[in-house]
Measured scan of single mutants.
Amino acid sequence: LQAFIKTLTGKTFTVEMEPSDTIENLKAKIQDKEGIPPDQQRLIFAGKQLEDGRTLSDYNIQKESTLHLVL
Protein backbone atom coordinates (compact mmCIF):
# COMPACT_ATOMS: atom_id res chain seq x y z
CA LEU A 1 0.00 0.00 0.00
CA GLN A 2 1.08 3.57 -0.54
CA ALA A 3 0.86 6.04 2.30
CA PHE A 4 1.61 9.73 2.51
CA ILE A 5 4.07 11.14 5.03
CA LYS A 6 3.59 14.82 5.81
CA THR A 7 6.22 16.82 7.68
CA LEU A 8 5.65 19.89 9.82
CA THR A 9 7.26 22.00 7.09
CA GLY A 10 4.40 20.98 4.82
CA LYS A 11 6.45 18.65 2.64
CA THR A 12 4.63 15.45 1.66
CA PHE A 13 6.18 12.31 0.21
CA THR A 14 4.97 8.76 -0.36
CA VAL A 15 6.22 5.41 0.89
CA GLU A 16 5.33 1.92 -0.28
CA MET A 17 4.68 -0.61 2.47
CA GLU A 18 2.72 -3.66 3.55
CA PRO A 19 0.04 -3.74 6.28
CA SER A 20 2.27 -6.25 8.11
CA ASP A 21 5.23 -3.83 8.15
CA THR A 22 6.22 -2.53 11.56
CA ILE A 23 6.52 1.15 12.38
CA GLU A 24 10.26 0.46 12.70
CA ASN A 25 10.33 -0.74 9.04
CA LEU A 26 8.45 2.37 8.01
CA LYS A 27 10.98 4.61 9.80
CA ALA A 28 13.79 2.80 7.96
CA LYS A 29 12.04 3.51 4.64
CA ILE A 30 11.69 7.16 5.61
CA GLN A 31 15.41 7.22 6.42
CA ASP A 32 16.22 5.73 2.98
CA LYS A 33 14.08 8.34 1.29
CA GLU A 34 14.74 11.46 3.37
CA GLY A 35 17.91 10.71 5.34
CA ILE A 36 16.27 11.25 8.73
CA PRO A 37 17.53 8.82 11.41
CA PRO A 38 14.70 6.65 12.83
CA ASP A 39 15.51 7.69 16.41
CA GLN A 40 14.64 11.28 15.46
CA GLN A 41 11.33 10.37 13.85
CA ARG A 42 7.98 10.51 15.61
CA LEU A 43 5.06 9.35 13.53
CA ILE A 44 1.53 10.46 14.35
CA PHE A 45 -1.63 8.94 12.90
CA ALA A 46 -5.19 9.72 14.02
CA GLY A 47 -3.77 11.74 16.92
CA LYS A 48 -1.69 8.84 18.26
CA GLN A 49 2.07 8.46 18.35
CA LEU A 50 3.02 5.20 16.65
CA GLU A 51 5.17 2.68 18.53
CA ASP A 52 8.07 0.94 16.75
CA GLY A 53 7.04 -2.63 17.53
CA ARG A 54 3.49 -2.31 16.21
CA THR A 55 2.37 -2.89 12.63
CA LEU A 56 0.49 -0.64 10.24
CA SER A 57 -2.54 -2.91 10.51
CA ASP A 58 -2.48 -2.55 14.33
CA TYR A 59 -3.21 1.14 13.76
CA ASN A 60 -5.63 0.47 10.89
CA ILE A 61 -3.45 2.42 8.47
CA GLN A 62 -4.92 1.94 4.99
CA LYS A 63 -3.71 2.85 1.53
CA GLU A 64 -3.41 6.57 0.99
CA SER A 65 -3.54 7.29 4.71
CA THR A 66 -1.59 10.38 5.73
CA LEU A 67 0.85 10.07 8.63
CA HIS A 68 2.46 13.08 10.24
CA LEU A 69 6.20 13.08 10.81
CA VAL A 70 7.46 15.12 13.76
CA LEU A 71 11.19 15.52 14.37
Rank of each mutant, 00 (worst) to 15 (best):
L1C: 06
L1I: 15
L1A: 06
L1P: 04
L1S: 08
L1F: 15
Q2T: 15
Q2V: 15
Q2K: 14
Q2I: 15
Q2M: 14
Q2H: 12
Q2D: 05
Q2F: 14
A3W: 11
A3C: 15
A3E: 03
A3D: 02
A3L: 15
A3T: 12
A3V: 15
F4M: 11
F4E: 07
F4P: 02
F4C: 10
F4T: 14
I5Y: 02
I5N: 02
I5D: 02
I5V: 08
I5L: 04
I5Q: 01
K6A: 09
K6F: 09
T7E: 04
T7R: 07
T7Q: 05
T7K: 05
L8N: 15
L8K: 11
L8D: 14
L8M: 14
L8F: 14
T9S: 14
T9M: 10
T9H: 13
T9K: 10
T9A: 11
T9D: 14
T9C: 13
T9Y: 13
G10P: 02
G10H: 04
K11Y: 15
K11Q: 08
K11I: 09
T12E: 08
T12I: 13
T12Q: 08
T12N: 06
T12F: 09
F13H: 02
F13R: 00
F13L: 06
F13Y: 04
F13G: 00
F13A: 01
T14I: 13
T14Y: 11
T14G: 05
V15E: 01
V15K: 00
V15M: 07
V15Q: 01
E16Y: 13
E16G: 07
E16T: 11
E16D: 10
E16R: 08
E16A: 09
M17N: 02
M17R: 00
M17P: 01
M17Q: 02
M17D: 01
E18S: 14
E18I: 11
E18W: 13
E18N: 13
E18K: 14
E18T: 12
E18C: 11
P19Q: 10
P19M: 13
P19I: 12
P19A: 10
S20A: 08
D21L: 04
D21R: 02
D21W: 11
D21S: 08
D21A: 09
T22C: 03
T22V: 04
T22N: 04
T22L: 09
T22W: 03
T22E: 02
I23H: 00
I23L: 05
I23K: 00
E24M: 13
E24S: 13
E24A: 15
N25V: 12
N25T: 14
N25L: 13
N25G: 08
L26V: 06
L26Q: 01
L26F: 03
L26R: 02
L26M: 06
K27T: 02
K27S: 00
K27P: 00
K27H: 01
K27Y: 02
K27N: 00
A28N: 12
A28R: 15
A28V: 11
A28T: 10
K29A: 07
K29M: 08
K29S: 04
I30D: 00
I30G: 01
I30Y: 01
I30V: 04
I30A: 01
Q31P: 00
Q31C: 09
Q31D: 04
Q31V: 03
Q31Y: 15
D32V: 13
D32W: 10
D32A: 15
D32C: 07
K33S: 10
K33G: 04
K33Q: 13
K33F: 09
K33R: 12
K33C: 06
E34A: 13
E34S: 14
E34N: 09
E34T: 15
E34F: 13
E34L: 15
E34Y: 14
G35M: 04
G35H: 05
G35D: 05
G35K: 05
G35C: 04
G35Q: 05
G35E: 02
I36R: 02
I36H: 10
P37Q: 06
P37I: 05
P37M: 06
P37S: 09
P37C: 06
P37K: 06
P38G: 08
P38L: 13
P38S: 14
P38W: 11
D39W: 13
D39C: 10
D39S: 12
D39R: 10
D39G: 10
D39I: 08
Q40C: 08
Q40E: 10
Q40K: 11
Q40H: 12
Q40R: 12
Q40L: 12
Q40M: 10
Q41L: 05
Q41T: 03
Q41C: 05
Q41Y: 13
Q41E: 00
Q41W: 05
R42C: 11
R42A: 07
R42L: 13
R42N: 11
R42K: 12
R42H: 13
R42Y: 12
R42G: 05
L43H: 00
L43R: 00
L43K: 00
I44S: 11
I44G: 02
I44E: 09
I44Y: 15
I44M: 11
F45R: 02
F45V: 04
F45K: 03
F45L: 09
A46Q: 14
A46S: 09
A46V: 06
A46N: 15
A46K: 15
A46P: 01
A46W: 08
G47R: 03
G47E: 04
G47Q: 03
G47L: 03
G47P: 01
G47M: 04
K48Q: 14
K48F: 09
Q49H: 11
Q49K: 09
Q49E: 15
Q49G: 05
Q49D: 13
L50C: 02
L50W: 03
L50S: 01
L50H: 01
L50Y: 02
L50G: 01
E51L: 09
E51H: 07
E51G: 04
E51S: 06
D52N: 11
D52E: 07
D52P: 07
D52Q: 04
D52Y: 04
D52G: 06
D52V: 05
D52L: 04
G53H: 14
G53Q: 10
R54K: 14
R54P: 03
R54S: 06
R54H: 12
T55D: 03
T55S: 09
T55K: 12
T55F: 08
T55W: 05
T55H: 06
L56M: 08
L56S: 01
L56W: 06
L56E: 01
S57H: 10
S57T: 08
S57Q: 12
S57I: 07
D58I: 02
D58R: 02
D58V: 03
D58E: 11
D58T: 04
Y59M: 04
Y59E: 02
Y59T: 02
Y59H: 03
Y59C: 03
N60L: 09
N60K: 07
N60V: 07
I61M: 08
I61S: 05
I61N: 04
Q62Y: 10
Q62R: 09
Q62C: 05
Q62K: 12
Q62W: 10
Q62V: 13
K63V: 09
K63F: 11
E64F: 15
E64D: 15
E64M: 09
E64G: 15
S65P: 08
S65T: 10
S65W: 07
S65N: 08
S65H: 11
T66E: 09
T66P: 06
T66V: 15
L67I: 15
L67E: 01
L67P: 03
L67A: 02
H68A: 05
H68I: 15
H68M: 14
H68Y: 15
H68C: 11
H68E: 11
H68P: 02
L69P: 00
L69R: 00
L69A: 01
V70E: 10
V70Y: 13
L71Y: 11
L71C: 08
L71E: 07
L71P: 07
L71M: 10
